[in-house]
């Protein structure tokens, strides 16, 4: 079946559903995901981390911050590896900055956890900060073209071909995880140095005028590899990655046996990233 006909049938089907059940259509509008993978999220008050999807995978990650403290330079190594394999440009200024993953201070990654007095070491810890791949992503809800969407494995992905660069997703993301290509990432600075030092020939770059962010290494997962940052941190055991919906996965095991926190859980985004502080 050609894609046009398939799309038509899909739209026709969805319209029919919307017509029959107005409440369900309204629900779809509110939820922002026509094909939500899971059931309803448990209320934050119960201390649940997120909604458990009934079917399908939901990739997630546990970030053990202490392990990063024990291994100085590890966070930087993760960032460097990610940015080099994904052809992330370095413009050398904050205004144009593009980053998929970065080391942030505790008070900025967790601004709602500010305290009068806290552990002295905390402020110096590098907290690995990246897209939360939320189960209820506000960016997906906001995108007017479905250029950003949640795929069947729970990864919030981007289609750079479709993005119109309205930056609504950037306003919607409560985690500052998204970057915009304010200028041509393939360009050169005034000294003639390219913004992307060394191109990875197997991965594309982006173009001017689109939004980009961490893709949970969807291209590596497809060929049976784990995300690049997880691979870098594997010897230190600082990052654990896997399917949150599989009760026997390493990441589920880790979540059962440790106390973890999430960023801004009160916003109902159900992040798939968990931090052990």
């Amino acid at each position: 079946m050609d894609s046009k006909r398939r799309n038509f049938l899909k739209i026709a089907g969805l319209s029919a559903i919307a017509g029959i059940g107005a409440p369900s259509a309204f629900n779809m509008l509110l939820k922002g995901e026509a094909l939500a993978s899971g059931g309803h999220g448990a209320p934050a008050a119960q201390g649940e981390h997120g909604a458990a999807a009934v079917t399908g995978k939901r990739y997630g990650m546990v970030i053990d911050v202490k392990k990063f403290a024990d291994n100085p330079g590890l966070a930087e190594q993760c960032v460097k590896t990610c940015h080099s394999i994904h052809n992330v440009p370095d413009f050398g200024n904050r205004k144009d900055e593009i980053k998929w993953v970065w080391a942030e201070k505790f008070q900025h990654t967790f601004p709602e956890h500010s305290q009068y007095k806290k552990n002295d070491g905390l402020n110096e810890l590098p907290i690995l900060t990246l897209c939360n791949h939320c189960d209820k992503p506000p960016c997906v809800r906001a995108c007017p073209t479905k250029a950003t969407f949640k795929n069947k494995d729970g990864i919030v992905a981007m289609d750079y071909h479709r993005c119109i660069g309205c930056r609504f997703c950037m306003a919607a993301c409560p985690y500052g995880a998204r970057s915009f290509n304010w200028r041509d990432p393939r360009g050169k600075d005034e000294n003639g140095n390219p913004f992307i030092k060394e191109l990875n020939p197997t991965f594309p770059t982006r173009m001017r005028g689109v939004v980009e962010k961490c893709n949970f290494c969807v291209e590596r997962l497809a060929i049976g590899q784990i995300p690049a940052c997880v691979e870098v941190a594997s010897s230190a055991g600082a990052l654990v990655f896997g399917d949150l919906n599989d009760p026997n996965s390493e990441v589920s095991e880790k979540l059962r046996s440790s106390f973890t926190i999430q960023r801004k859980p009160a916003l109902g985004t159900h992040p798939s990233l968990f931090y052990i502080i």
Binding site: C143, P144, G209, V211
Partner: peptide, 17 residues
């Protein structure tokens, strides 16, 4: 950022946006 693609809003209608 990509004004040439503005019509994508109609090409891929997204009622949740």
């Amino acid at each position: 950022g990509q004004p040439m693609r503005a019509m994508n809003v109609m090409l891929h209608p997204t009622p949740n946006s």
